[in-house]
Nucleic acid binder design. Structure first.
Lengths: 230, 230
DNA sequence: CTGCATCCGACGCGATACTG
DNA sequence: CAGTATCGCGTCGGATGCAG
């Protein structure tokens, strides 16, 4: 870890936390990840060796700790970073100019994020299957299935001959924009950017379903309440 | 600027802000710096070329803007980073383990920080000169003079045959610890870690004088009110 | 003094392969 | 799945010097 040679507390924290990937790793822990693989899943582009060394560094710094042979969790110091993460996220949401360059789009990340954030209680207890079709996504990540059944949500990338209740067709960019609240689902449907077919009564719940993302609250309130990430 | 390939607002903000030096540069702007040299003074170890490229990047990102031929200031987006800086600083103050390694000590930074943070109103209007002597500082930065006269504080590194009102002798480490509120000035005096000689009535004000650092408020309150950096 | 260009070294970081 | 070892590239960033 490179130091700044300054006694300033900000220098102390940034030299630890503001290295590449580090704050995103913390984000994954806040979002509920516990294992090496959980973290990797939320950070597809990090190399295992780097992740490994970051975890070691964060352990030594007392931000995370091992809770088992292969599980970690945030310490008190780590949990204290949550407001920082939230504030930085809110700043990015409001002030970042990058407006979703196509290189920022990643269907896998999007769906993974959905899976862990959606509230299954919105749908009936019986199994409900929602298929997403992104016509502009790279081959192999165009079609996704979210399977909600008795309080659980599963994510599938392969067609298991599902009995699909709802089919959502749109561009990856549109769905991502909806997910991070740059537009509302309903508006996107109205303007034909999203096409929904299937069970009408279930369809009405989609907007509400898609609002439970922790990010989604960013757009709506200026000063932003505690988020329910987990 | 290296990107993460993620749409997450946190990824957007960190890829811009969490590169080496960047947040410390913002800190310097918040502290009132406007010119290239102001920033450099607070970041003695940054190279001019790197500072230059960071300023350019931040301009493009809309965090700072040129206000004149050679002055910059924070934009609205930049000002919005202040809570982030404060939170990160508070985190570092509370949770950073590094406990002032000697490599973090820097007499120049310390004195520069003092000069801009001290409240001259504490002392009488007439010229008051306080000399600091750090016996463990590197040669050439052992002796410093703070000159307070009618509402202004100047900093000197050379002996101008001053008529010194107060002489403060201690280690650089001790003074730094006091400055960032790891201990109080009075306690350090009591335990003989700081030796003060000179005008007794002025000496009594030192503790109060040294409490006006923006950092000093970190230690005292858990949730920390708006700081007066400027 | 301000700001930038150039050079070059160090090492942060990524890719891959491999082990338990 | 959870990491470690190795290798090598790329770039960050530090030193110096110069131009405005």
């Amino acid at each position: 870890m490179k130091t700044y040679g300054q006694f300033c507390p900000l220098a102390q924290s940034t030299q630890l936390l503001c290295e590449r990937w580090t704050l995103l790793i913390i984000r994954e822990f806040i979002a509920g990840g516990q294992r090496f693989g959980d973290i990797q899943k939320g950070l597809p582009q990090i190399s295992p060796s780097l992740l490994s060394s970051r975890l070691k560094l964060l352990s030594e710094a007392g931000v995370i700790e091992k809770t088992g042979i292969k599980t970690y969790q945030l310490t008190e110091a780590g949990l204290a970073l949550r407001p920082v993460i939230e504030l930085l996220g809110a700043w990015g949401h409001k002030w970042s100019r990058s407006n979703l360059g196509s290189s920022d789009l990643d269907a896998g990340l999007l769906m993974w994020d959905m899976r862990r954030s959606l509230d299954p209680a919105i749908f009936p207890k019986r199994t409900v299957i929602v298929q997403f079709e992104y016509f502009d996504a790279p081959k192999g990540s165009k079609d996704w299935w979210l399977v909600s059944s008795n309080g659980d949500v599963d994510l599938c990338l392969t067609d298991n001959d599902y009995d699909v209740d709802l089919l959502v067709k749109c561009s990856l960019k549109t769905m991502t924009a909806v997910w991070i609240c740059e537009m509302t689902f309903n508006d996107a449907v109205k303007s034909k950017q999203i096409e929904v077919t299937g069970d009408k009564s279930l369809g009405k719940n989609l907007q509400e379903w898609l609002r439970t993302s922790p990010l989604s609250k960013l757009g709506t309130t200026e000063t932003w309440p505690k988020l329910d990430w987990s």
